[in-house]
Amino acid sequence: MSAPMIEIRGLTKRFGAHEVLRGVDLTIAASEVVCLIGPSGSGKSTLLRCVNFLESYDRGEVRIAGRLIGYEEGPDEIRRPMAPRALREMRREIGMVFQHFNLWPHMSALNNVAEPLKRVRGLAHAEANERAAAMLARVGLADKAHAYPARLSGGQQQRVAIARALAMQPRLMLFDEPTSALDPELVGEVLEVMKSLASEGMTMLVVTHEMGFAAHVADRIAFIDDGRILDDGLPRRVLHESGEPRVQQFLQTYHDRNAF
C-alpha cells in the first residue's frame, strides 16, 4: 500500500501566543476529495496553507506522498528547514487556488497560465502557450486568452487561476475558499470546473462554505473548530448525523442563514 497523498499528523501552529492549530490529524488518499468546513478563525485556511508550506508549522508533520514538506528529516530528532530548491520542487506538484484569485494583473490570461510553465517547467515559448491555451479551453475560457485579469469577471479570473494551477500537472490541488469572493451568480461556473476535476480523479482538499458542493462532490467532510478536527467522515453523516454538538450548532446557523 503506497503512502497517502496527504498525511497530516499532530500538526501544531501558533501565531505568537495564539495557537491556531492544536494537533491536527488528517489523511487524504489519492483521488479523494475532502472538504474542510468550519467557522471563520477556526484554522482551516492555515491548515490548508501548511500543506504547501506557504505557512510554516511548529510541531507535527505534513507529508505529501510520503515526503515531509518544509523540513529535512535527519538521523537525529532535530529538523532543519528544507532547502529552498527542494521545497520549490515539492510545490510544483501541489496546485493552489486562492480566495482572491491572485492572478498577475500585468499578464494576459494566457500568460498567467504560460508563465510558470516557462519559468518552472522549462517549456519553450510555443509549447507553453499551446498548453496554456488548452488549459484555458478546459475551463471554458478559450476566447479570453488575451484578456487581462481586470477585464475578466471574478468567476472567469478564478477559472484562469485554476487553469494556471492545473497546467503545472500537479498531483493534488488545494482550494482556499475559491468561491467566497464571488458574486452568487458566478459561483456555479467555478464549482462546475471543480466538479469535473473531481470526477477525473484529482486529489483535492477544499476549504469551503459551499455546503451543496461539499455534500455532493466531496468523498469526506472534515469539520474544524478552534484548531482541532472535531469530525471527519462521509458528507451525509457529518452534515446530518454528527454526534458533535459544535458541528450541529454550526450547521444550524448555516441552515438558518440560508433559509428564506
Binding site: 510545490r91 510544483r92 498577475w104 494583473p105 519559468r119 503545472m168
Partner: peptide, 25 residues
Amino acid sequence: VGQIEAAMSVGMSPRDTMLRVTLPA
C-alpha cells in the same frame, strides 16, 4: 502579497518571482 504567494505556490524561484511578478507590478 497574494501575487507573490501565487508565484511561490507554483514553485517559481525567488529570482523569477522578482523579475516576472514583483518588479513589473
